[in-house]
Amino acid sequence: MSYTLIYSQVTGHIPYLLAGAWLTLQLACISFFIGWAIGLVNASLLVYGPRPARLAVRAYVTFFINTPLLVQIFFIFFVLPDMGILLSPYAAVAIGMSLNAGAYLTEIQRAGFGSLRRAEMDAAAAMGFSLVQTIWYVVLPHIAKALYPPLANQFIIQVMTTSIAAIFAVEELTGRAYNVNSLTFRALEVFSITAVIYVLLTIACSLALALLGRWLFRVNAKVF
């Protein structure tokens, strides 16, 4: 049996899919920035915090890195209602993705903090920099340069992971692809177009982030 690809029935739905891509970006941004904040707090705790806090952060990171995101969201979505916390699918996905991203971003930012050298701080002190000046002129530019490429990379990963939200009936790009599929029954056409949109979306994000990095921090981030 052979199957002919007919794209003409699907092309009309491309604007609808692209509107879903907007929600994809939104979800990626929310989870990335909350995850970033979690990671920043955690990484500071790992470097400066007391021992129990360090252990707690280690446990959090190890657990979230070594279990699948999908099951984490299932857990949030199905277990929390038993305890009286009712979440919308969107909220459950956003919380799950943020916690998951938080674990990865803790690791990334801890490595960034670790790249700061004692000698640089001493040099700043010798030049008579105040604490604020040291942080603003020495610590931040250095850390930003070291951290920017892995952070940008993590954002791209977040964009792709949002597809999991479709499983919880959130109508982002993949969720809308499911919808179009059940309207037209042109499954292969719909999902191949969705794949192409994901490729273009992530390339656009990589390009934008590379330009932003070059402009803000003089980082030569790679696109490919």
């Binding site: 049996m1 199957y3 597809s163 999991i164 993949t174 692809a177 499954a187 292969l188 969705t194």
Partner: peptide
């Protein structure tokens, strides 16, 4: 290499699933 690292696993899964189904 560049394309397949930029498509989410779920979307790849759906493409393969329907490709198998529709090819018979």
């Amino acid at each position: 290499v560049e394309l397949f690292r930029r498509i989410p696993f779920l979307v790849k899964l759906m493409c393969v699933f329907f490709a198998f189904q529709l090819s018979g």
